[in-house]
Simulated scan of single mutants.
Amino acid sequence: MKIYTRTGDGGKTSVIGARVEKDDLRVEAYGTTDELNSFVGQTAAVIAKLPAEEWSDRLEQLTVIQHELFDCGSDLSYASPDPGKLKVSAEMTERLERWIDELEESNPPLEKFILPGGSEPAALLHVCRTVCRRAERRVVSLSREQECPDEVHKYLNRLSDYFFAAARAANVRLKVQDVEYERSAPVFRRRS
């Protein structure tokens, strides 16, 4: 099988059920989700070099997320989404919420904005967070003009929160303090 087809040389590509321009909102949405998946893969590759007994939980979560990002891309690639064929479910978003709650238990209280970074795993997780936010923005743009699976938007919204909590937890695990943005007023309050 050849990897190239030449069918996109004119600036069009196929989504499920249509041919569209390569910069179509639908292609932008699933393309940015694919970009996010690549950054998650890079993050997992860095974490895989750390002691397995301490990091296997995070590595397992990132692997699940990579599969679910493929599900997001699949759902976004339908020109006319068929609810019976969609893969992203509310249960996936609910699992992210449980993971976030578990991560937040180990994180110190947060009062001010923090700078992305600290340790290498945390910095990469912050990159994932920001690319995830961009993917979410692309999905919102798509949903204004075309049919778009609502559950993908919810999943991406929660996923960016997961990356934030996981970045902070990575710093805690590596005994690296988050750096507060020096001109930030206190903006966060712990929820009970």
Rank of each mutant, 00 (worst) to 15 (best):
C72K: 01
V15M: 03
V152H: 00
L159K: 02
C72L: 06
A166H: 01
V88Q: 04
H153Y: 14
W99S: 10
V139H: 05
L96M: 05
E180H: 12
R190I: 10
T43A: 09
E28C: 11
L103I: 06
E94C: 08
E60A: 15
T93S: 15
F164A: 00
F39D: 01
D75L: 03
I3M: 12
F164I: 02
V15A: 02
S106D: 14
D101W: 05
V40G: 02
R168F: 04
D82W: 10
T33G: 09
T43K: 03
T5W: 08
Y181Q: 11
R98A: 14
R138V: 06
P108S: 05
A45Q: 09
D75W: 05
Q66W: 06
L115I: 14
A90W: 09
Q61K: 14
P116Y: 00
H126W: 03
S192E: 15
E68D: 15
L159E: 02
A165Y: 03
Y162T: 02
K87C: 07
Y4T: 08
A44K: 11
F113T: 01
I114F: 06
E120N: 10
E151L: 14
C132N: 02
Q61L: 11
H67Q: 13
L124T: 03
K154G: 11
R58W: 14
Y181K: 12
W55N: 01
E28L: 10
F39Q: 01
T33Y: 01
E60W: 12
I47C: 02
A122I: 03
A18T: 03
F70N: 02
A170T: 04
A44C: 08
L125H: 04
V88L: 06
Y30S: 03
K12L: 12
H153N: 13
T63M: 14
V127K: 01
R183T: 14
R98G: 10
R168W: 06
P81T: 10
L36P: 00
N171W: 04
K175W: 10
Q177H: 12
R98L: 13
A45M: 10
R6I: 08
G10Y: 11
T43F: 01
S141D: 15
G73S: 04
Y155F: 15
L156P: 00
S38G: 09
A29P: 04
K12N: 13
S184M: 07
P186R: 13
W99G: 06
R183K: 15
A135V: 05
I65P: 04
V88I: 12
V64A: 14
T13C: 09
V152Q: 05
S77C: 12
D82E: 15
V127M: 05
P108Q: 03
S106T: 15
M92Y: 04
S89G: 09
A167G: 07
P109V: 09
D23H: 15
I100M: 05
E151A: 13
F163T: 00
S56I: 11
N171M: 03
A44L: 12
A167P: 00
T33C: 14
S89I: 07
D101K: 11
F188W: 10
L174H: 05
E120D: 11
D24L: 07
R95T: 11
G41W: 04
P83Q: 04
Y155S: 05
I100S: 02
L59S: 10
S184Q: 09
V40K: 00
D71E: 12
E111P: 05
A122S: 15
D57G: 13
E105M: 11
V20K: 05
